[in-house]
Design a protein around this nucleic acid. Structure first.
Length: 219
DNA sequence: ATCCCGAGGG
DNA sequence: CCCTCTGGAT
């Protein structure tokens, strides 16, 4: 066996070990966005860009009460939607994308969120991260690994990828993690990123992954 | 000043 | 590759 292959195998084992520990640490961890339907999950995920899930969950109840489905959102009042989602940031882009995506869902996909990656990616404001979240949690379809800011940061710190581009990071992770665990990995990494491995002040001293982490620091 | 379940445009 | 869009918390 070449040294390259050995390296790959050990990295794969490390990824498996990491996920095992995180599953024990955060049992029952799931998508932390609140939603009732696939359309609502899609909208909540669009809103989650550069914004905490907690903050998204504060605006979606009023948004979905006023505009409960794709048709209501698509043909609703742009300014009112902007006001309802204002505190999530990027509110003009997000409102435009939500309405554009919902209009396309109504007019081209028969009012249903498409269940294929290729189709989801044609919706405005939807790229791989959002598509992966919707496919996994609304439909149970594991098309890829959700790479958000936490997955990116922790995957790099844990030495699972050297890439900086989310697409390449996703490709690396898809090779390291067995498909049934693709979304589990993202969810658990996100929990750990919020609770322990924060961007600014990682708590390496109390990190259960420290023995597997090449970036662990004292303190 | 930096970060939060990003995406699109140049 | 770069830049822009945005508010709220730390």
């Amino acid at each position: 066996m070449s040294s390259l292959l050995r390296k790959m195998a050990s990295k794969k084992q490390r990824a498996t070990e990491i996920l095992l520990i995180l599953k024990r640490l955060y049992p029952g961890a799931t998508c932390s966005l609140d939603y009732q339907t696939p359309v609502q999950l899609l909208v909540a995920t669009i809103l989650s860009a550069q914004c905490t899930d907690e903050r998204v969950n504060k605006v979606t109840p009023a948004l979905f009460q006023r505009y409960p489905d794709a048709a209501a959102l698509a043909y609703g009042d742009r300014q009112e939607i902007e006001e309802l989602i204002h505190s999530t940031g990027f509110f003009r882009n997000k409102a435009k994308n939500i309405q554009g995506a919902c209009r396309k869902i109504v007019e081209e996909f028969d009012g249903e969120v498409p269940q294929r990656m290729e189709e989801l990616l044609t919706l405005p404001g939807v790229a791989r991260k959002t598509a992966n979240v919707v496919l996994a949690h609304a439909f149970g379809i594991l098309a890829g690994v959700t790479v958000d800011t936490h997955v990116k940061r922790l995957s790099q710190r844990l030495g699972l990828t050297k890439a900086t581009d989310p697409i390449r990071i996703e490709r690396d992770l898809m090779k390291l993690i067995p498909q049934p665990d693709w979304e589990n990995f993202s969810i658990h990494i996100i929990y750990h990123g919020r609770a322990v491995c924060a961007a600014r002040k990682p708590l390496c001293g109390e990190c259960q992954l420290a023995h597997l982490c090449p970036s662990v620091q004292a303190g």
